Deep mutational scan, measured.
Amino acid sequence: CETCDRYISGRVLEAGGKHYHPTCARCVRCHQMFTEGEEMYLTGSEVWHPICKQAAR
């Protein structure tokens, strides 16, 4: 997992080739988790909900 550096077994979320436990992938702006299939916007090592990234501009 990109966030906690632990092995992932079971469900995995992926953004930009990086992998996360579903509970570790959180938006840097709103701190909410991502749901399965939800779009993730990756900037460097930061993961955003698209609407949060747009609002931060």
Rank of each mutant, 00 (worst) to 15 (best):
E39V: 03
I51P: 05
T23R: 09
R29T: 11
E38M: 03
Y41E: 15
K53N: 13
R26K: 14
T43F: 08
E46K: 09
T23P: 05
Y7C: 03
P22Y: 12
G10C: 02
H49E: 03
G16I: 00
T3N: 15
W48E: 14
M33Q: 12
Q54E: 15
L42K: 12
E36S: 05
E46W: 05
C24S: 02
C52W: 01
H21L: 01
M33Y: 15
H31S: 13
W48R: 14
P22M: 08
I8K: 03
K53G: 09
C52N: 05
T23C: 06
C27G: 03
V47R: 07
G16D: 06
F34K: 03
Y7F: 02
I8R: 02
L42A: 13
G37P: 09
W48D: 04
A25L: 11
K53L: 08
E36V: 07
P22I: 10
E2M: 15
Y7W: 03
G44S: 12
H49F: 02
G37Q: 06
T35Q: 10
K18P: 01
S9D: 11
S45W: 05
E39L: 02
Q54W: 05
V28R: 10
D5K: 14
H21C: 11
T3Q: 10
A56V: 11
A15I: 15
T35K: 10
A25H: 12
H19A: 12
G10F: 00
M40N: 06
C4M: 02
Q32M: 11
G37E: 12
G37T: 10
E46A: 06
V28I: 14
L13Y: 11
G10H: 02
E36N: 08
P50E: 10
T35N: 08
P50I: 08
P50N: 04
G10I: 01
R11D: 13
W48H: 13
I51R: 11
E38A: 08
E39G: 09
I8F: 03
T23A: 11
R29I: 15
R11P: 12
S45M: 12
C52A: 00
F34E: 03
I8M: 05
E14H: 05
G16M: 10
W48I: 13
V28S: 11
C4Y: 00
D5L: 08
E14S: 12
C24H: 04
P22R: 05
H31C: 09
Q32G: 10
G17H: 03
T35C: 08
Y20E: 02
I51K: 08
K18H: 03
G44R: 10
T35A: 12
C1L: 02
L13M: 11
V28W: 08
C1W: 01
C4S: 00
G44D: 15
P50W: 04
R57I: 15
S9I: 07
M33I: 13
Y20S: 02
Q54A: 11
V28Y: 04
G17W: 01
E2T: 13
F34C: 06
G17D: 09
Q54D: 12
E2G: 11
